[in-house]
Design a protein around this nucleic acid. Structure first.
Lengths: 204, 204, 204, 204
DNA sequence: AATGAATGAGAATTCATTCAT
DNA sequence: AATGAATGAATTCTCATTCAT
């Protein structure tokens, strides 16, 4: 069974490279990041990296894709649990806050790709954005079916939810607000959204 | 008084450099942008740029500061006009949308600085963020005084407003939504915010 | 006797490598040729090539030697048949023309080794040159014995014959002359040589 | 007049680079030659070379062109002087011998380009070959007009002359024949050619 | 003050070769 | 014997910055 062991080794190395790449790219950005250093920190020769990724650009894209998968999984899990719409939106907020905190390398590398100037990177990052919107749309639709909110444009509302959630956390971090301060706002933010999207009172 | 003429010339050249720098940095990002090209497009010699800015980094920072001043002026003007809080927030949204559209170079260079990995650039960009928050806070305080909203943490609410506004526009643009679609949402967004921050009904 | 079978296999593999090497070296030259590609096209593993040849350089030299043997065989055969000296020199010319056409990979790899800058390769290629000269010298000596030509320096005359023959074909090919045009000159060239080396008329 | 001085300086530097390039390329061939080393030996910074030549390949081609001009000039001069056809062909031979001896770097770099595998280089080198043929054709035509030779295909005869001359010298050098031995053959070779191309005796 | 020629640090990538399996 | 994953030396070219004019 050397095949399976080899395959596992290969996968482990690949993951190690991606992890170190995320760290390096988060620290310095795409252009300043040094492939040699990534290889070194991954404990492999600098030529070896090219056995796993065609070039620097492809490494970056592969890393973006990996990050996207992980983050989308986390967000999906957060929204999967039952509860009122407000509770679920609060969990969404907390999920993002946790991502930003615990996997801040990935988070910042993602944001810089999304809002940076490199079109190829932006396109890849936008894919995750769309996935987020799809997931949130589903939740909002359920909320609408339950009469919790009322929206004539679910996609626009989803973008409202996502923008607010993501950007709030991001900005708060940039402003150096303490982590607790951020997570404490989860319920208030969720409440604001629900209020904002509240169904119009029906006349009897 | 040739002194004044010289001074004016110098200022004109400086501005020209900054304008071309914004274009180039927006197009390629800090690292890929080429100083020689900026000089060429500004109609000056390669070496001359260093008589105006210490180095590439300082040029970028000076450009960020210039952009910040311009944008803050626009936003201030939008919020200065009278009207209900909802109207003013809608105008804020539209002001950002216009900035993103009409001065997209500056806008994108700013966003990539804010969400990018370079700490020095982020710090500079954060300054504008704080200025925005201060301006919005003022407006919200007035709204609170008028009973239009009710917030126990004006700064947090300001961040909510700013995050939502800025990120909504940014994301919509990344998603390639048509400009009209974006500006059309101004009132709905403003309305949502007002609803979300609505004062609790007082029991009589 | 599995020994013999093994030996045959080994020899077959060796020959396959040499054939693919000639193709690759002819296509790209020594430096640009890729050992991995040669191995791949020979249907063996990258490492295997080093069980047959010490390194890239030795592979190239071995290939040169193989080519030399083949080409010398062809030329010898062409000169072996009976006929007047003029007929034999015309056959020599045609033999070279055929080599250049039918085994152009080998021919071009050889010429670039001979006229290239790598001393080790040039030395190896020169060996074939000397062998050619020896063969031609023999033929000229016979021609002299028969009174067909008259030369006070057979070696120099051999070089004259070889230079003219080889270089004429090579240059004509570089100039993109059609193959037929080249072979058509065989007799004229042979005739010119014979005339040029004609014995001085003896006074009676 | 700093313009003229600058222009002279620039031209001098350019020539120095080309000279060192010829040396380096002759020593190691195109691929093994090191741009940094060429710059160093030319006494300039390694970036400077790129102010004069776009890249390594263009440097090589420029060098080939320079060599071609020089060599063609030498050959033209050799053939320009009056004399019998035989004398002129002997001078042609000697001119090539001198080029091969005194400017052996250029000579070998040229030969390896002509017979090497790089099509771009070969095309450039072939141009010189054609120029040589044109010059020799002119001379042969004059010889024919004078009744010194008789050829039904001047171009083919020119190639015969050139191939023999060039290749004889080249091969003799590869075979390590002493220089004197080579130059001594000039008249014999010229004589052989004239004999070989001798007009058919007319019957009276 | 303005210029642009010259510089050289720096980094991605290739590929011959090794060696554990 | 055969393999191919891993290695790292080696090299071209770019571009921010300097400085003599």
């Amino acid at each position: 069974m050397p095949k399976i062991v080899d395959e596992q080794m290969r996968e482990a190395t690949r993951r190690k490279i991606l992890r170190e790449a995320a760290r390096e790219f988060a620290r310095l950005g795409f252009d300043q990041a040094n492939i040699n250093l990534i290889a070194e920190q991954a404990g492999i020769g600098k030529g070896t990296i090219y056995l796993y990724f065609e070039n620097k650009r492809e490494l970056f894209l592969a890393m973006l894709r990996t990050i996207a998968q992980t983050q989308l999984g986390t967000v999906r899990a957060a929204l999967a649990e039952a509860g009122t719409l407000e509770q679920r939106l609060a969990r969404l907020f907390l999920a993002f806050a946790r991502l930003a905190e615990e996997d801040s390398d990935s988070f910042s590398v993602y944001m810089s790709a999304l809002y940076g100037v490199n079109r190829a990177f932006q396109a890849e990052a936008t894919r995750l954005l769309r996935d987020y919107l799809a997931v949130i749309s589903l939740v909002l639709e359920q909320g609408q079916a339950n009469g919790e909110i009322q929206s004539d444009d679910i996609e626009a509302s989803s973008l409202l939810v996502l923008s607010l959630t993501e950007s709030y956390i991001l900005s708060a971090r940039v402003l150096d607000w303490p982590e607790a301060e951020i997570t404490n706002r989860a319920e208030a933010i969720a409440h604001t959204i629900i209020q904002g999207l509240a169904p119009k009172p029906t006349v009897t």
